[in-house]
Each structure stands twice: as structure tokens, then as C-alpha cells.
Design a protein around this nucleic acid. Structure first.
Lengths: 186, 186
DNA sequence: TACAATTTTCACATCTTCCTAAAAGGAATA
DNA sequence: TATTCCTTTTAGGAAGATGTGAAAATTGTA
């Protein structure tokens, strides 16, 4: 009986490792560093509040590294600090709602990346208008460039405004997905 | 008059540089290398077919590097080779439709990343079922892990099937965006 | 076929990013 | 306030990703 319990524990650990490895590979997709992803993966899959030491041991990562990445995770809102009464150590716990996690990550990327892009595009576009460029804005090369920048700008603006609406909260995401899924059925 | 024309050319070059720099920064978002992105940026914004030498000169990148990255761009379908009659050199030209570009990139990422993820998740899930784990699968730790993996699996499966539908062609993307935009108006 | 023009490949160099270990900093207890 | 426990910061180093240049391969031309 004892061996069976130990066996189970080992198997669970195995699954957890696979999962952490998976998160590790997804890091690029989420736009976060692999270690940050692994830590979050561990917290998500175990579903419990872990201390820095727990994480260090489990993932073989140095203290400093764990500390830095946990701060970022907290900053992003994917993980929150948990204080246990009677204990000095801090513990950390992942969000459990996958929709919410998804929304948070999407929003971070939007703010950090999309908004910058839109500003630059706007600037590029303005430098190609007749006001800035004078009569020669009508010449073919300037026209073509203006069009291309503008196309992109329109697409990203559209996507951005949708994101604003649907990533505001994780309910928004749910709605959007359901809407599209419905459409698919038709 | 001559100076004005030169001035215009310089300004256009300036805008192009900004744009290339922007693309460079977007590389992470697209999941491609910065140089690959810059090359594509240049091809997109100029809207003309350029030779390897043109690109080398303009972006100050070595021949080998340009060659490798152009191959990838062609492989991805973002750029196509153009043969000019009477010239031995190959020229390269970017897709011009932003929707199509977007769709291509999204599909690449999906195939290269999402599909792998789904497989791993499926495997993890199967290792947590009563069939594999025996009676102890009912115990709290196994249950919790199963649930978490399963939540994720469901979400990603849903997103994946939508992607399949809507990223099949760039028309699909248009439809989806229009659908969501409509909804927004209500 | 030989030659010239062009592209691709690849070993090596460079750069960036990430990680570690150790020291400094901060908070709870006595 | 001193001590202990824990976390954060940081300087430097390792690992991985990217870029280079020149040789090899390929393609077109005479």
C-alpha cells in the first residue's frame, strides 16, 4: 500500500514535469521568458501555494532567478502572493481560471507592443501626407508607401479596437469565442 | 527643383527606416527573427522587387544572412521570388495584402506551436485518468491536476478549432473581424 | 564544356539574453 | 537594537541565438 502511494506521487511528479516543459515551450508564444513560464506552469499545475524554496528545489533554479521571475508574474497578475499566518515566508499561487490568464497575457502584449506599433505607424503615415511632403506626395513612390502604411494602420486599428472590447475582461473573451463558435455552426 | 527631389528621396528613406525598425520590434510578436522581419519590412514598405544586393546595401546585412532569411520568408509565403527577363539576379517581392500576411503568420504559429501543445496536453490528461492511475486517481491531488489540464485543453481546443475555421484563408479572417465588429456596435 | 554570375552553406565570431552566486536590503522576533 | 530569516539586487559569466565571410554549389551563357 505504501509503495502504491509513492508510485502515484512519482507519476504525478512526472505529469507535472511534462506540463512545466510544455509551458517552457509556450513561453515564446506568450511573450515571456522560458523560466517565467516554467514557474507559472508549476504553480498552475500543482494548484497550490508554493514558497520560493519549493520552486527552487523543484525546478532547479537559483534563488535570485526565482525571485525576479515571481515578481514579474505578480506584476502581470498571473500569480499572487499569499501570506500564511505564523509563517515568515511568502507563498505564491497561480490564477486558476484559464480564460482570465489568457486575457491577462493578451492585454499585456497589447499594451506593451501593439500600442507602440500604432504610434509609429501613425507617425510614418503623417510623414507621407501632402501636408508634410508638399506637392511631391502625389508622386508614385510616396503614394505607394502611404497606401501600404495606411492599410496596415487600418487593420491594426481594427484589431486593436476589438481587443479593447473583448479583452477588457475575461467575460469579453468568452463572449467573443462563443460568438465565433456559433457562427461556425451555421 | 533638383534639391527638392533629393530631399523627398531622403524623407522617403527616413520613413522606410522607421518602418523597418518597427518591423524589427514586432519580430517577437510574429515569432520570427528580427532580421527576417526587417527584410520583410523593407520589401513591404518599398513595394518593389529588390535583389539581395539591394537589401544588403540598404540594411547593412551580410550576404549569407540575407540569403538565409529570404529563403525562410519565401518558405513562409510572405515573400516571393521574381525573375526579371534578361537579368540573372533573382528579385524578391513581399505580399501586399495585409490580411493575407496576417493569416499566413498566424497559421505558421498555429502549426508550429499550438498543435504541439495540444498533443502534450492530451498526453498529460491521459496520464491522470483512472485507467492509467488506478483507484488513486480519485484522490484529491490527481483530481485537481486533471481538472487543470482539462480546463486548458478545452480552451485551447476551442480556440484551435476557431482558428482552423477563420485562418484557413484571409477571407475567413475578414469574416471573423467583421462579425466581431458588428457585435461591438450593438 | 568552360566560364562567369549568383546563391547557398557552414565554421567561426559576435551579440544578446538569461542565470547564478554573493552581497545588500528589509522585516519580524527577541 | 541585535539577530535571524527571507527577499531583492547586481555584477559577472554561461548558453543560446544570430550574424559574418569565404568556400562550395548552382545556375545561366557563350
Amino acid at each position: 500500500m505504501k509503495t502504491r502511494a509513492a508510485d502515484i506521487a512519482a507519476r504525478l511528479a512526472g505529469v507535472e514535469d511534462q506540463f512545466v516543459e510544455l509551458w517552457n515551450n509556450m513561453a515564446g508564444l506568450w511573450g515571456i521568458s522560458p523560466t517565467m513560464a516554467r514557474i507559472h506552469g508549476l504553480l498552475y499545475i500543482t494548484g497550490s501555494a508554493l514558497s520560493m524554496d519549493d520552486i527552487m528545489d523543484r525546478l532547479a533554479i537559483s534563488r535570485g532567478n526565482v525571485s525576479m521571475n515571481l515578481s514579474k508574474l505578480v506584476e502581470w497578475g498571473l500569480v499572487r502572493r499569499v501570506h500564511r499566518r505564523g509563517a515568515r515566508k511568502e507563498y505564491f499561487e497561480s490564477l486558476s481560471d484559464v480564460w482570465e490568464m489568457f486575457t491577462l497575457v493578451a492585454n499585456q502584449r497589447k499594451r506593451r507592443e501593439i500600442d507602440l506599433i500604432l504610434n509609429t505607424l501613425r507617425r510614418c503615415r503623417d510623414e507621407l501626407t501632402p501636408e508634410t511632403l508638399g506637392a511631391l506626395a502625389a508622386a508614385e513612390p510616396a503614394q505607394k508607401r502611404f497606401q501600404r502604411v495606411n492599410e496596415l494602420f487600418k487593420l491594426l486599428t481594427l484589431i486593436d479596437s476589438l481587443a479593447q472590447r473583448f479583452f477588457e475582461s475575461h467575460r469579453g473573451l468568452r463572449e467573443a469565442v462563443e460568438l465565433l463558435a456559433q457562427e461556425e455552426d451555421r
